[in-house]
Computed example of a mutant assay.
Amino acid sequence: MIPAARLQAAIEILDQVITAARDGGAAADTIIQRYFTTRRYAGSKDRRAVRDLVFAVIRSLGERPVSGRAAVIGHARAQDPSLLALFGAAGHAPPALVHGEPAASSGLAPAWLQQMLAERFGPDADRQLAALLGRAPLDVRVNAMRASRDAVLADHPDWQLLAATAHGVRLPSGTNVEDLPEYQAGQIEVQDAGSQLAAATLAARPGETVVDLCAGAGGKTLALAADMRGPEDDRGRLIACDTDRARLSQLPPRAARAGATVETRLLNPGGEAGALADLMGSCDAVLIDAPCSGSGTWRRNPESRWRLTRERLVRLAATQAMLIELATLLLRPGGRIVYIVCSLLPAEGESQLADTQLGGTLGLAPWQSRILTPADDGCDGFFIAQSSRL
């Protein structure tokens, strides 16, 4: 593909990404993969170049553009003027530019989200936001049930120790993890350093009854299982729950590969308490990796800035409050609760805990919280809070 044809491909993909962001469709990565599945003539260099351009455009535009063409024009004017010369070129180039046609404006995030983040970070907001839109590293967690971090690092001098974590390692960008013998042997799992720190906050121990209330495909569940390692008859009980059947179904094979014993429970939305009735008041620890805006993971999914609306944020906050109440009911006296969102919006963090007035209504000790950010901690953005049942 000539450069002008690559530009046209990027415009066509961006049209689909913009529509998907508006209507709740597929992620950008999935759209790009599907696009090239039907275009076998595009070589690997073409696919990589188009993908890089698509994500460069997405990262440079805070507000959702009206079209892929407007997105590229706006990006080109602000970041890469050489692209403008490709409009109207020969071959499969996009049509020539027309005076006065729409062009997107560059920015870090939609204005209303940028204001919320400014409230959190104050004068440091621009630095924090810029880091949120950088490229994410490739982190893995060494599975302590299968290997030691020191042994894994000894075999790979180019892998980097993540000192802030107990088992984290950073791999060179572009590494195909699933092809590594360590992955196939269940010795490593892909997991961002921040996610590892969040799971470790629960301090799960052998012999305990632990619930991962929003387990998804089980990344944090497997980290909890490794913390609960010990003699097979003394590992305790680990229950992974979720309302998403497809995601939860990925956990059993992952657990088998990791050497973990995990129970799974598929919950019906609105009927979660009934499905967990037998565990009420008996759990030692509950982890809530709550559904959220994902604003802390914009490095990985920059188009998610275009998906979020005020209405959706309100719905997410209601779900988060329900999950905190449910988790509290599951705990025995003295049991521990950890609430996590991969979000840096105060509405899903401190304000969420304040609005639910948990200390007064649910019998919890005062919350202790921390935030992690790409700019300060080199990992995805997280809000992490912990408490215990009085």
Results as ranks from 00 to 15, higher is better:
179 D>F: 08
109 A>L: 15
278 D>E: 11
202 L>G: 03
238 L>K: 00
190 V>S: 12
333 P>Y: 08
283 C>T: 14
200 A>Q: 00
24 G>K: 07
255 A>W: 03
358 L>G: 10
280 M>G: 05
284 D>V: 06
91 G>T: 08
26 A>V: 08
196 Q>W: 02
336 R>I: 08
264 T>A: 01
61 L>G: 08
339 Y>H: 15
342 C>H: 02
323 L>Q: 10
115 Q>D: 14
47 R>E: 02
58 I>T: 10
96 A>W: 13
21 A>Q: 05
367 W>P: 01
149 R>V: 07
317 A>L: 09
54 V>Y: 06
62 G>W: 07
378 G>I: 09
234 D>M: 10
10 A>H: 06
175 T>A: 06
375 A>Q: 14
372 L>D: 04
159 W>R: 09
67 S>C: 11
158 D>R: 09
203 A>H: 05
143 N>D: 00
33 Q>D: 15
372 L>F: 08
1 M>T: 11
306 W>H: 03
341 V>P: 00
69 R>G: 13
17 V>H: 05
178 E>T: 15
259 G>I: 03
107 G>L: 07
18 I>E: 01
61 L>Q: 08
345 L>D: 11
13 I>L: 13
4 A>D: 04
35 Y>E: 11
14 L>I: 10
123 P>E: 14
53 L>Y: 09
189 E>K: 06
144 A>T: 15
234 D>E: 15
247 R>F: 05
206 P>I: 07
238 L>F: 00
118 A>W: 05
116 M>L: 15
84 L>A: 04
191 Q>N: 04
188 I>W: 06
294 G>V: 05
110 P>N: 11
140 V>A: 05
314 V>L: 15
3 P>D: 04
305 R>L: 11
39 R>P: 06
9 A>W: 09
76 A>P: 04
206 P>R: 04
63 E>W: 09
24 G>Y: 00
288 I>S: 02
3 P>I: 10
53 L>E: 06
360 G>K: 15
288 I>F: 07
148 S>T: 15
237 R>T: 01
368 Q>F: 07
123 P>S: 11
344 L>H: 07
318 A>T: 14
229 R>E: 04
325 E>M: 09
137 P>R: 10
8 Q>R: 15
16 Q>V: 14
146 R>W: 03
90 A>M: 08
350 E>V: 12
352 Q>G: 13
198 A>W: 05
243 T>K: 10
49 A>D: 05
169 V>G: 01
320 Q>S: 03
347 A>D: 14
260 A>L: 02
148 S>E: 08
226 A>W: 02
26 A>W: 09
199 A>L: 02
228 M>T: 03
329 L>S: 14
183 Y>S: 06
253 P>T: 05
265 R>W: 07
346 P>L: 13
222 L>H: 03
360 G>V: 12
179 D>A: 14
130 A>V: 10
72 V>R: 10
350 E>D: 12
222 L>V: 06
213 L>N: 04
224 L>S: 00
145 M>T: 07
310 R>T: 13
318 A>I: 11
162 L>G: 03
47 R>P: 02
1 M>I: 09
212 D>L: 10
342 C>L: 00
172 P>C: 05
310 R>V: 10
128 Q>P: 03
317 A>F: 11
248 L>Q: 03
106 S>Q: 12
371 I>E: 05
173 S>D: 13
196 Q>N: 01
183 Y>P: 02
127 R>L: 11
345 L>E: 08
279 L>M: 14
138 L>P: 00
266 L>W: 15
190 V>I: 14
89 A>G: 14
51 R>A: 13
156 H>S: 05
174 G>W: 15
